[in-house]
């Protein structure tokens, strides 16, 4: 039943936050890896909470005790029993605790790093200032700022960067984050236990718009995921209505195609995919890596002045007259 919501629900959730608080929360895990880490956190929280509360209570009691005993002058010299106390409380107990906690930590680390020999779905994500390029190399599908994965299947993600260091983090679906280093590949595994929308965000400061570099993960039942892939495999159909056809001309003439690819229409003139592939733009929920909703008005304003929503974004403003703009928007929203 995800299908009809694919377009509407994300927009609602991303920007109106309908009942979906905490969808970037490490405390609401939806994958075994993230859940293992969450339980490690609760163990750490409880055990250190008890130990530190006892220590602080001891400190406060010591202050209270010494305060009461102000008048009689005690000896200034320390006693050897103090050393014994310090060795027990400061060396003995922490050592026992640390051995236990380190063991749990190493085991959790090993557990969450385990993954199947072969993935059913493999994808590649390339970080850019300030958006995400997403490839499904085995399926020939390219998109941006949204990842679609099947529920209940481990997904292998290869990550790298086209420019500076970014960091890939989907708190609910993966055991933590991993850096996207230019010139190197890192691998992590996503797993969604239930269908739904999940949010991720860049977690390595990557420049002026680091704050607006977010990512949407759509987890759907495998058959719907396959449908989603199939819908993107070929070349998008030729625009049928004349306004959209005019929009395609505008896209090519106004310089958009220098940076943006649309399968079967344009390939970026500049190396390294400076802008997102727009082949399925119409089906995405947001513009500017989850900066604003992807609807007609926002898309038009974004084309004219992307800087207004995302100051410092690499996309330049594109001055267009009303008719051209309307045609371009018409064409772009039809791409899905």
């Amino acid at each position: 039943m995800i299908r009809p919501t694919l377009r509407c629900l994300p927009v609602a959730v991303v920007f109106l936050s309908i009942g979906c608080g905490g969808w970037q929360s490490a405390l609401d895990p939806r994958s075994p890896g993230a859940a293992t880490i969450e339980s490690l956190w609760w163990i750490a929280f409880t055990s250190t909470g008890i130990l530190s509360s006892l220590t602080i209570l001891g400190l406060l009691y010591a202050v209270h005790r010494a305060h009461r005993r102000a008048a009689p002058e005690t000896s200034r010299h320390t006693a050897s029993r103090e050393q014994t106390f310090i060795l027990i409380a400061g060396v003995g107990i922490p050592t026992l605790f640390l051995i236990g906690f380190l063991t749990l930590s190493v085991r959790a680390g090993t557990a969450v790093s385990e993954h199947p020999e072969e993935a059913t779905v493999m994808l590649e994500v390339v970080g850019h200032q300030f958006w995400w390029e997403v490839h499904y190399p085995n399926h020939g599908v390219v998109t941006a700022n949204e990842i679609h994965i099947p529920v209940g299947e481990p997904v292998e993600v290869h990550i790298t960067s086209a420019d500076v260091i970014h960091s890939f983090w989907i708190p609910q679906l993966a055991p933590g984050k991993l850096d996207m280093n230019p010139g190197r590949f890192n691998t992590l595994w996503l797993f969604a236990e239930e269908a739904g929308l999940y949010r991720g965000q860049c977690t390595e400061f990557c420049g002026v718009q680091h704050a607006h570099m977010a990512l949407l993960v759509v987890a759907s039942p495998p058959e719907e995921f396959e449908e989603w892939l199939d819908a993107r495999r070929g070349t998008p159909p030729e625009p049928t209505d004349p306004e959209a056809a005019r929009g395609r001309e505008v896209f090519l003439e106004a310089g958009c195609s220098a940076c943006h690819a649309i399968r079967g229409v344009s390939r970026p003139r500049f190396a390294g995919n400076p802008g997102p592939d727009l082949t399925d733009l119409g089906s995405r929920s947001s513009l500017g890596a989850l900066t604003i909703p992807n609807d007609r008005e926002h898309l038009a304003q974004w084309i004219l002045e992307p800087d207004r929503f995302k100051p410092g974004v690499r996309m330049p403003p594109t001055p267009l007259d009303d008719a051209d703009l309307a045609a371009l928007v018409r064409y772009l929203e039809g791409l899905r």
């Binding site: 880490i37 490690l40 250190t48 130990l51 906690f101 930590s105 959790a108 969450v112 055991p175 977690t203």
Partner: peptide
């Protein structure tokens, strides 16, 4: 100090780093 012990644990750090 105690949150320091927590973030020294590798997997927990993977979640909360940065």
């Amino acid at each position: 100090g105690i949150t320091g012990i927590m973030i020294a644990a590798v997997p927990f750090n993977w979640q909360v780093h940065d």
